[in-house]
């Protein structure tokens, strides 16, 4: 027989060897790359998956600049000291980076339903890699969608007015933001089990959060409790920070934003992995 016959002895030895921390870490990374590649191939085979991911943000941009913008744009513009399109677009980047995570929810739920996950689970690979490979692939996709949004914004008059470093930092923050929240979406995907429910469950919590935030209108124009909520929730902190960086203003909420991201990953990554492994029992 040829060299890739795995005998009992080598199987036990190989498994024992991979128990060491550094080996596990190495295979976790290599398996993650393999799964990321697999998920990215889906986008290559079905480019429409990327197309649909920026349809919704484009509609939001057109709706708010062309429909509502006429009525409220000048008020916000006066309040904020720049064109409404410059106020709106940074918020749209934050929103786009966030909701693209729905793909993670739907993708994982589909894998679980179709039995692909059984194949992965029966292989001697890292279990967490199935999730990290998914969240990373969707972050790569976000690079495309956010780039498209920058181009669409430019056509409508949006301009970066901060320094290059500030603008670059703003875009990197958007990607990191999207990545950290993709763990929330991953967790939902592992919990709900079927892609149809995943579509709804993925979106439902984002919807109220994005409107009760400073993404579309400044939070200080809101009333009572809503204003208090909007000013303290992470979407507002993030939108304010990205907006400040893009417009070259002081980004004084950068630290809380970073803490939120770290906190989200620290809570939801282990939760998602735990839920994923638990479903084998």
């Amino acid at each position: 027989m040829s060299e890739n016959v795995i005998s009992l002895q080598t199987a036990i030895e190989a498994a024992a060897k991979e128990q060491t921390f550094s080996e596990r870490l190495k295979w976790f990374f290599l398996d993650t790359i393999e799964i990321t590649k697999r998920n990215l191939l889906h986008y290559v085979r079905m480019p429409q998956l990327i197309f649909f991911s920026f349809i919704q943000p484009v509609i939001f941009v057109l709706l708010f600049t062309q429909v509502f913008g006429g009525a409220m744009g000048s008020a916000i513009s006066a309040l904020y000291g720049t064109d409404y399109v410059n106020y709106l677009l940074p918020g749209i980047f934050v929103q786009t980076a966030l909701v693209s995570g729905v793909a993670t929810t739907v993708g994982l739920a589909a894998d679980l339903q179709k039995g692909m996950v059984d194949r992965f689970r029966s292989l001697p690979m890292s279990r967490a890699a199935v999730l990290t490979g998914r969240t990373l692939a969707d972050s790569v996709r976000s690079v495309f969608t956010i780039t498209i949004m920058v181009l669409v914004g430019s056509l409508l008059g949006f301009r970066f007015s901060g320094t290059f470093a500030e603008s670059a930092l703003a875009m990197v923050l958007c990607l990191l933001w999207g990545y950290s929240f993709s763990w929330v979406f991953a967790w939902i995907g592992v919990v709900v089990k079927d892609p149809e429910t995943a579509q709804t469950a993925g979106f439902i919590w984002v919807f109220p959060l994005q409107f009760a935030s400073s993404i579309f209108v400044p939070s200080q124009t809101m009333t009572g409790f809503l204003q208090w909520f909007a000013e303290n929730q992470p979407l507002t902190l993030m939108a304010n920070t990205v907006r400040a960086l893009i417009l070259g203003r002081p980004a004084d909420q950068l630290v809380p934003v970073i803490l939120w991201m770290v906190g989200i990953v620290a809570v939801f990554a282990p939760l998602a992995v735990w839920q994923y492994t638990r479903r084998t029992k």
Partner: peptide, 11 residues
């Protein structure tokens, strides 16, 4: 982990 190296599964 060791078992997964030596069996094949077609579900």
């Amino acid at each position: 982990g060791a078992a997964r190296r030596i069996f094949g599964l077609a579900g």
